[in-house]
C-alpha cells in the first residue's frame, strides 16, 4: 500500500465513521493537535468529529535526509471524536484492518503514554499503540486544552503515516517508501529534508548564527505582539494562527541553539499564556455562530 493509498484508506474509513475530512492547516505546526480543528474544537460542549492529514514540522528532528527514521517534516493522520465513543478502541483497531493489517498475525498493544503540551496548556491520558513493538499511533483522551478542563472528553488518534506505511511496505528506510504513482518518498521529499534541516539548525552560508537567531527572535516578538492585538480586537482565530507562528519560531530557535535553558522556559511560558487567553476567548458566549440558511421562498 502506497503512502497516498494509506491516506485515502484512512480518510475513507473515518469519513465513513461520521468525520468531516478536513484539509491540512496551511501554517507551520509541530503536530496535528495544534490545528484549530483540534485545539479549538475540543473546547466547549458541541460534538465534533473530524479527520485530516497534518504535515508536521519538527526542526530539532531534522537529519539532513541521512537518518532512515527521523525527519524535519513528517505527516500525521489526525482524528478527533468528541465525545469519545465507548467502542473507540475497537473502531480504531478496525481502521488498521481497513489499511490491510491482519490483527491476528501481529502484536498490537496499548501501552501507557500520557500526552502533554506545555506550550498549549494541554494534556491528556492515553497510550502509544505499539505494532510489533513499533509506535504507530498516539491515542489520547484529552483532559485539558488551553488550561481549560474539557467536557465532554474528546479522543485524539494520531497515526504516524510514515511509520505505518513503512510497516505496510516492509521497508527500513523512510526514503524507500513508495509515495504513490510510482514515486518514492526520496523523490518527493529528500531535497526538502536536506535544505530544511540546514535551515532548522541555522546553517546558512553567508549568514551568521547570531543573525539567524536574531531574525527569528525578532519575528517571534512581532508575531507575539500582533497576536495579542488580534486577540484584543476579538479576532480569536487569526490570533491563534499567530500564536502558532510563535510556537514554530520557538521550535526553530530551540533547534538552532538560539536560546539558553532559562530563556527556553520563559518562551514556553509566553506561548502558553497566549494559548490560554485564546482558548478562554474562544469559549466566550460571544462566539459568532454560523447564520441559519434563509427559508426558501415559495
Amino acid at each position: 500500500m502506497t503512502l497516498q493509498d494509506l491516506i485515502f484508506k484512512l480518510s475513507e474509513y473515518w469519513g465513513g465513521h461520521g468525520c468531516v475530512i478536513q484539509q491540512p492547516l496551511d501554517i507551520e505546526v509541530g503536530a496535528g493537535t495544534m490545528s484549530p480543528e483540534t485545539f479549538l474544537r475540543v473546547l466547549g460542549p458541541e460534538p465534533w468529529n473530524v479527520a485530516y492529514v497534518q504535515p508536521s514540522r519538527r526542526p530539532a528532528d531534522g537529519r539532513f535526509g541521512e537518518n532512515p527514521n527521523r525527519l524535519f517534516k513528517h505527516h500525521q493522520f489526525q482524528v478527533i471524536l468528541k465525545p469519545a465513543p465507548d467502542d473507540i478502541q475497537q473502531v480504531y483497531l478496525q481502521s488498521l484492518e481497513a489499511c490491510g493489517i491482519d490483527l491476528r498475525a501481529h502484536d498490537i498493544r496499548f501501552e501507557e503514554d500520557n500526552w502533554e503540551s506545555p506550550t498549549l496548556g494541554a494534556w491528556g491520558i492515553g497510550w502509544q499503540v505499539l505494532f510489533d513493538g513499533l509506535e504507530i499511533t498516539q491515542f489520547t483522551y484529552f483532559q485539558q486544552a488551553g488550561g481549560i478542563e474539557l467536557a465532554p472528553i474528546s479522543v485524539e488518534l494520531t497515526y504516524g503515516l510514515e511509520r505505518l506505511a513503512m510497516v505496510l511496505q516492509r521497508v527500513d528506510n523512510v526514503f524507500d517508501l513508495v509515495w504513490g504513482a510510482g514515486v518514492k518518498y526520496r523523490e518527493a521529499r529528500w531535497r526538502d529534508e536536506v535544505e530544511q534541516s540546514k535551515y532548522a539548525f541555522g546553517q546558512v552560508e553567508g549568514l551568521s548564527r547570531e543573525a539567524f537567531a536574531a531574525f527569528h527572535r525578532e519575528l517571534f516578538d512581532r508575531y507575539y505582539a500582533f497576536a495579542e492585538s488580534l486577540l484584543a480586537g476579538g479576532l480569536v482565530i487569526p490570533a491563534y494562527e499567530h500564536c502558532l507562528k510563535c510556537s514554530h519560531l520557538f521550535n526553530v530557535l530551540d533547534a538552532c541553539g538560539g536560546i539558553g535553558v532559562t530563556e527556553r522556559t520563559a518562551y514556553i511560558l509566553r506561548v502558553r499564556q497566549l494559548a490560554v487567553a485564546i482558548a478562554q476567548a474562544y469559549t466566550q458566549p460571544a462566539t459568532p455562530t454560523a447564520p441559519e440558511p434563509l427559508p426558501a421562498a415559495d
Binding site: 501481529h106 502484536d107 498493544r109 505494532f131 510489533d132 513493538g133 513499533l134 510497516v167 516492509r170 527500513d172
Partner: peptide, 22 residues
C-alpha cells in the same frame, strides 16, 4: 520479545521487532 497474542507464524512479528530494535 513478549507478545500479547499467540500466532502460528511468529516470523512476521519477529521481523518487525528486529526492525524496531535495529
Amino acid at each position: 520479545a513478549v507478545t500479547n497474542i499467540e500466532v502460528d507464524n511468529t516470523r512476521k512479528i519477529a521481523v518487525n521487532s528486529e526492525r524496531v530494535l535495529t
